[in-house]
Design a protein around this nucleic acid. Structure first.
Lengths: 172, 172
DNA sequence: ATTTTAGGTTTCTATTTGCAACTTAAAATT
DNA sequence: AATTTTAAGTTGCAAATAGAAACCTAAAAT
């Protein structure tokens, strides 16, 4: 009867609902991908992604309101408007690439060409992973929750008696 | 007039649409988070996330169909059913944590407690980043697209004349 | 024998999506 | 100068989806 896991507190107060409020809608990530690939203008987004006109207008407004895109009327052609990524928007790149990599790995044999490489060495990037403070790649079972007050700020200090102040992520 | 970026090809054929087909719906990531935190049963999901009964039933079915969750009737109590993550589902963890971290960083002062730590050292995990083959952290401007046929398979080889076989991700 | 629990399904309403046509201002063309 | 085209929306309407509440069925608990 004594359930060991009780992660009910943080479920309410984590960054995920916040993130989903901004990015949880159907076309948001597709618009973001287009923006990352240099798409700037309304009609350009429209033809690039197969989205309806009114929906695109609505999404661009929302993404602008949530500070992911910035809307600037073009000075040289006053019909045109530019929608480009803010720093907040650029900061979604790891999420987007992680999602894309997952789709490639598990999707229906997507060959993924062209491939993302780093400019310096022209080699494909690594799969996006979770890492410890000292850069070890961590799996699901290497993670647990801890109260931030109980964490020793320095990094070169062995774990003392943490007892029940640690909550393990549940086993699959 | 000569537009330098033309990433129109890969927009159609990348893993993102595939991923969004499975995970693009409103409650999918919330269900996934609950699953990662050890939620197994229908009524448990129901009370954990604030989702409607019929929608939850529908999403659990869809997530099961797309191989992210596995549905098992409980042997000991034949009223109960277990929905738990498959390997495919577990593999979404980097995406989910990246999204969560973004929400924490840019959201309305979410203090994020408890915090995810690695079990060995009890230190908070690093922000999820994009990395080169030799583990350098890469920013948006360090990335470009390349035809997979043009990549030299080995890693210790300086870039020769790649010319127009490389397409830069557009500047923000 | 009755009540409670678990996991749904059904019904109905409200919201969202998507298509197609329309609008408005500015630029390009004749 | 008049006309056409382009860009970025808005509007109206049908279809699909989300959500609340009640209902259902089998199994377990009392």
């Amino acid at each position: 009867m004594g359930e060991l896991r009780e992660p009910l507190q943080q479920l309410a107060e984590c960054g995920l609902p916040t993130a989903l409020e901004a990015m949880g809608e159907r076309w948001s990530f597709m618009i973001l991908r287009a923006a990352f690939n240099g798409v700037r203008h309304f009609e350009e987004y429209l033809s690039e992604i197969g989205i309806a006109r009114n929906i695109l207008a609505n999404r661009l407004t929302r993404l602008t309101e949530s500070g992911i895109l910035h809307r600037t009327p073009c000075p040289d052609d006053r019909r045109k408007v530019e929608y480009r990524l803010t720093n907040k928007g650029v900061d979604l790149l790891p999420t987007m690439i992680a999602l894309r990599q997952w789709g490639e790995r598990w999707g229906t044999g997507v060959l993924s060409n062209p491939v993302l490489v780093d400019e310096r060495d022209r080699q494909p990037i690594l799969p996006v992973t979770i890492r410890s403070h000292d850069e070890r790649v961590l799996g699901h079972m290497d993670l647990c929750w801890m109260n931030s007050a109980d964490i020793t700020p320095v990094r070169t200090d062995a774990a003392d008696d943490v007892g029940d102040r640690v909550r393990k992520l549940s086993a699959i």
